[in-house]
Design a protein around this nucleic acid. Structure first.
Lengths: 191, 191
DNA sequence: ACGGTTAGTTAGTGATAACTAACAAATGGA
DNA sequence: TCCATTTGTTAGTTATCACTAACTAACCGT
């Protein structure tokens, strides 16, 4: 069983990813956490305090470097699968924060930065990987940065549309999207 | 010069796409439109009324069918460019509504539906196009629906990330993203 | 059993915002 | 010039919400 603070933060995050920061009231959070309103203020002083503590507690910073140094096997299809899963794992663990960030762009622009920073790091690692694959003569000579960006953008599009929108065109394709996408990239880039 | 109603709707849309529906006050809209608060209520009765009128006035429904029947030349690269531009044109014209929709998912879920419907229509047209290209022996035999979905998801990822986030990994690649993406798809799918 | 920490209750404050009412000023066509 | 429509002004109502204060009840280790 979790303690009072955790119950509050969990409730806050759950409600805010649905409705956004602004539209969730302290009263609502308290009810959802089954504590009194006063308890929330005693633990976190302000509503902003609740929010910041929740973000702090639930944000996930991955270690991509470990993946790239230990799990790469220099087979384009297998490695792209690994990379895609690493990215989606990052985004899924940060999904509540991502969802709040989209609803509070103007109020908390720094929220996005936390996620974007990780994505940029991953992009650089993919660029390095592609370059190395070209050196090993297993990938066509193309602009590696462009390919890395397109790959990440596709994954972002997949994550974003499935997270944000229920009735998207991806409907019923969620399982096979990844394998089809990686197959496409391999067709285009493999040597 | 536009009339009073138009000035109000324009101001409302401009402010709401930045800050969301909830966080924009009637007072703010009135000031931005250079009218009095009362004028806003007299024209649209409620805040929701302002919003609905703005959405009505500024939503854009494209005619993809015209594009597909008249402008297709059965060259994969040229046609994908055309299709991509049609999609981005749709999304850009509906950008204000898209931006509000992302900030008000829970409050106005039907907003997304308006855009999603067009996207699904476009997807079906792309599937038909790909099928026809296979019949003409100009495209590899693959699952056309998967390819159509991946193509649209990539374009959606591009549009979404550039619209929502300032400091994304796409930075500085915005112009050449399209040509690189289309080139990738042609490499993978052309026969 | 005592004392300190933690939580609940209740009442209230101040700010904001949607919306109303009543009246006055400006505008513009016949 | 007169009338009708549109707009501005001001004052007020109602509701919500973040946040405070003061007191009380339960819990828990020593």
């Amino acid at each position: 069983m979790q303690n009072t603070s955790d119950k509050i933060l969990q409730a806050a995050l759950t409600l805010m990813q649905e409705k956004g920061y602004q539209k969730v009231s302290i009263k609502e959070i308290a009810q959802h956490a089954e504590v009194s309103e006063m308890t929330v203020f005693r633990h976190f002083k302000t509503k902003l305090g609740v929010f910041e503590a929740a973000v702090e507690k639930f944000s996930y910073i991955p270690c991509f470097e470990e993946v790239f140094t230990n799990q790469i096997v220099w087979d384009l299809e297998m490695d792209l699968t690994l990379i895609a899963k690493s990215y989606l794992n990052l985004m899924n663990k940060n999904k509540p924060i991502f969802l709040i960030a989209t609803q509070e762009r103007s109020e908390f622009p720094e929220l996005n930065e936390a996620i974007a920073k990780n994505t940029r790091r991953l992009k650089d690692l993919i660029v390095a990987y592609f370059t190395s694959m070209q050196d090993r003569n297993r990938m066509k000579e193309t602009n590696v940065e462009a390919q890395a960006i397109i790959f990440l953008t596709t994954l972002y599009g997949y994550f974003s549309s499935t997270s944000l929108w229920k009735n998207h065109f991806l409907h019923e394709w969620e399982e096979s999207f990844l394998t089809n996408t990686i197959h496409l990239f391999c067709e285009a880039l493999k040597k």
